Computed example of a mutant assay.
Amino acid sequence: MTVQSIGDQARAFALQSASSRIKTTMATLTAELASGEVADLGARLQGNTQDLAGIEARISMLAQFGRSAAEAASHARGMQDALTSIHSLTEDMGRGLLIEPGAVTEGLVVARSAQAASALQTVIVHLNGAVGQRFLFSGTNSDTQPLSSADAILSALTAEVAGLTTAAGVAAAVSDWFDAPPGMGGFVDLAYHGGPGGQPMPIGEGTTVSLSTTPLTPAVRDSLKGLATAAMVDRGALAGNGIEARALLQGAGKALLDNSPALAVEMSRVGYAQQVIETARTEGSAASTTLQTARNQMREADPFATSAAISEAETKLQSLYSVIGRLSQLKLADYI
């Protein structure tokens, strides 16, 4: 009879290898139990990882949409806050200018005009506001401040109205300057430095929003026009002609009040964009949660099965140690 035998060194190596395999298995199972995810995802999915890859891709895409929507929400909120402040300021200023008593002194007329100039500066500060590194009302040129200073605008208008002696003439000159088309040396060429409208921003799957309000928007431009018209008296227009100066202020006040509904409509347009953005964010968040749940189910390790596998591995390791202990106690006399 042929006797097969194994040397001591070979046996020690075999036992060490078996011990390492069991310990590695226990470490893997312990990690799975702690993380809740299987270590060998390919084996879990039987090599079919296409669905998981698709889910991961959609989760990443929704995350990008979420970041874009958050940026758009901040932009729209900044625009809405600015327009709300402008609407309130111009409405109050228009009401004050329109109902100013006709018997006020020339000094009070100039003082009211100076208030209009200060209001114009405040409005321009709002329109030059930025969120992060993007100017709110610069349209496509969001990296460029949209408007020149109030002083620069009023200086340009002062030259336009020089020599005019009637309120109607001054108001018409200011209006023509603000409404002049590109290339005619008016508001578009000298005071506005932004771009046309705004670019559509993707905020969800198949959903985009465009925040296109700029100082070129009629409602916004007419607010600037009304305040600038009233500020002309403070710049020396119609000096010495109190009746025409008061008429100019009252006409500017009426223009501001007449423009108030249009400005409110522009605010509602921005408000609708905010609603679209919030709806897209809610839908995107819900879709992302659903996909993450599906992904977790595909990667989830069964805690009960994992615990049972750990117990089985412990039993194997204990049995192996028992065998090693018994082999270490063998004597040549016992073998013979």
Rank of each mutant, 00 (worst) to 15 (best):
residue 80 Q to W: 00
residue 6 I to G: 10
residue 12 A to Q: 13
residue 94 G to D: 14
residue 66 G to I: 02
residue 36 G to W: 03
residue 79 M to E: 09
residue 88 S to W: 00
residue 20 S to A: 14
residue 30 T to I: 11
residue 10 A to P: 04
residue 44 R to Y: 03
residue 2 T to E: 04
residue 73 A to H: 03
residue 61 M to V: 12
residue 10 A to G: 06
residue 39 A to T: 13
residue 97 L to H: 10
residue 38 V to Q: 11
residue 51 D to W: 04
residue 65 F to S: 05
residue 6 I to M: 12
residue 57 A to N: 13
residue 77 R to G: 10
residue 37 E to T: 15
residue 96 G to N: 11
residue 43 A to I: 12
residue 56 E to C: 03
residue 20 S to H: 13
residue 64 Q to A: 13
residue 3 V to L: 08
residue 9 Q to S: 10
residue 83 L to H: 01
residue 65 F to P: 05
residue 52 L to N: 03
residue 84 T to G: 11
residue 77 R to K: 08
residue 91 E to Y: 00
residue 30 T to R: 13
residue 66 G to W: 01
residue 18 A to N: 14
residue 38 V to M: 12
residue 67 R to K: 10
residue 62 L to K: 09
residue 18 A to Q: 15
residue 67 R to V: 14
residue 67 R to M: 07
residue 92 D to M: 09
residue 88 S to R: 06
residue 43 A to C: 02
residue 66 G to K: 04
residue 86 I to K: 01
residue 60 S to W: 00
residue 34 A to F: 01
residue 15 L to H: 11
residue 94 G to L: 12
residue 45 L to H: 01
residue 83 L to I: 05
residue 11 R to W: 02
residue 40 D to W: 06
residue 8 D to T: 08
residue 16 Q to C: 12
residue 80 Q to R: 02
residue 50 Q to H: 07
residue 56 E to Q: 12
residue 93 M to Y: 00
residue 32 E to P: 12
residue 74 S to E: 09
residue 5 S to M: 04
residue 50 Q to L: 09
residue 69 A to S: 08
residue 59 I to A: 03
residue 33 L to H: 11
residue 61 M to Q: 15
residue 86 I to F: 03
residue 78 G to M: 05
residue 26 M to V: 10
residue 56 E to R: 08
residue 9 Q to E: 08
residue 89 L to F: 03
residue 77 R to H: 05
residue 34 A to R: 10
residue 76 A to Y: 02
residue 36 G to T: 09
residue 49 T to E: 10
residue 84 T to S: 09
residue 14 A to S: 14
residue 58 R to H: 14
residue 41 L to N: 10
residue 10 A to E: 06
residue 72 A to V: 07
residue 81 D to V: 14
residue 62 L to A: 11
residue 20 S to I: 15
residue 56 E to F: 02
residue 36 G to Q: 09
residue 92 D to L: 07
residue 51 D to R: 14
residue 82 A to S: 08
residue 50 Q to G: 08
residue 73 A to W: 03
residue 71 E to V: 14
residue 72 A to K: 05
residue 21 R to L: 07
residue 28 T to Y: 01
residue 57 A to S: 13
residue 21 R to N: 11
residue 44 R to K: 15
residue 23 K to N: 12
residue 33 L to G: 05
residue 50 Q to N: 09
residue 29 L to H: 08
residue 14 A to P: 03
residue 53 A to D: 11
residue 74 S to R: 07
residue 50 Q to P: 00
residue 74 S to N: 09
residue 33 L to A: 15
residue 48 N to F: 01
residue 68 S to I: 02
residue 37 E to D: 15
residue 19 S to N: 14
residue 37 E to I: 08
residue 96 G to H: 09
residue 37 E to V: 14
residue 69 A to I: 11
residue 21 R to V: 00
residue 74 S to K: 05
residue 92 D to N: 12
residue 35 S to M: 04
